[in-house]
Design a binder for these strands. Structure first.
Ligand SMILES: [Mn+2]
Ligand SMILES: [Mn+2]
Ligand SMILES: [Zn+2]
Ligand SMILES: [Zn+2]
Lengths: 143, 143
DNA sequence: TCCTTATTGAAAATCTTTTTCAATAAGGAT
DNA sequence: ATCCTTATTGAAAAAGATTTTCAATAAGGA
């Protein structure tokens, strides 16, 4: 089921701005600020209100098509996300993000923590920062 | 080395507002909004500017005495943090937070992810939500 | 007690996100 | 292809969060 149907199914509409915002996110494998999304849309010929960007991101998050990324500073980026449980690792050089699931390790880790803390864990936020393979090569060149 | 020395060492001063904010954070084992910190300070007899709260939190984070907690919605809480590497698990019933380190499991997990993704991991953000032991008991009573 | 200057608070600026509401445009029905 | 209903948009304003400015204040070493 594509996004068109997913929306209509709930009485929602696949509008021009929604398509454009999806395209912007699809064409960029990295977390973008709402403001940046608006700019990119504008550069590709579509003037979209920033208000609409916020509203659309909220919707796309509900539809599990987009996730919020927490920046070091405090600002929030938004990135396209494939379905299913996974997390993001973001390159601190080029900004690109990669999904991973590391299901095994995470389940074990959470089990261990539940035993240690006696908490019942309901949800987790895991986000990694690092250097992607490409940027590692470049760093080598500099030396 | 206590906070007094830690500050003086860098030419910084242990002021009234800084002490009060530390006390507020110490007396509450849960993430607080800057605004809430100001209120608590006021309730305990110290009028502190919200500006000072922000500035002090920034400082305390640099000194590694405080950490930022990412709320589900987007607002940020601040919580006292003991030295060393660890993470927080927050009770979604009562708000209380507990530190854990789960060092073993995390190291293994990160190693696995480095192998899988070929990224060089530099830092990670891990934050758990759940129900604390106390609140689990209360839930049982309701049944 | 005095001096230097780091720090504070009030106000304003800046930035982010949400709300309002009239105009617009999806998309199902005719 | 045209009409209708109403979900959606955009402009403006409101609300909320965080930062900057700058004169007055207070740490803390001399
Ligand atoms: Mn997970
Ligand atoms: Mn955040
Ligand atoms: Zn990279
Ligand atoms: Zn609890």
């Amino acid at each position: 089921m594509d996004i068109q149907q997913k929306l209509n199914q709930q009485g929602l509409r696949l509008t021009q701005p929604r398509q454009v915002i999806m395209e912007v996110l699809e064409s960029t494998g990295m977390p973008l600020l709402p403001q940046t999304i608006q700019q990119r849309a504008h550069e590709s010929g579509s003037k979209i209100s920033l208000v609409t960007v916020y509203r659309t991101l909220e919707l796309l998050i509900e539809l599990k098509l987009v996730r919020r990324i927490h920046g070091q500073d405090g600002c929030h980026g938004y990135i396209l996300s494939s379905p299913g449980h996974h997390h993001h690792i973001i390159c601190q050089k080029c900004g690109r993000a990669l999904e991973f699931n590391g299901a095994d390790g995470i389940v074990k880790l959470l089990d261990q923590i539940e035993r240690d803390t006696k908490f019942k864990i309901e949800s987790h936020l895991l986000q990694l920062q690092g250097v992607c393979p490409d940027c590692q090569k470049e760093k080598d060149h500099e030396k």
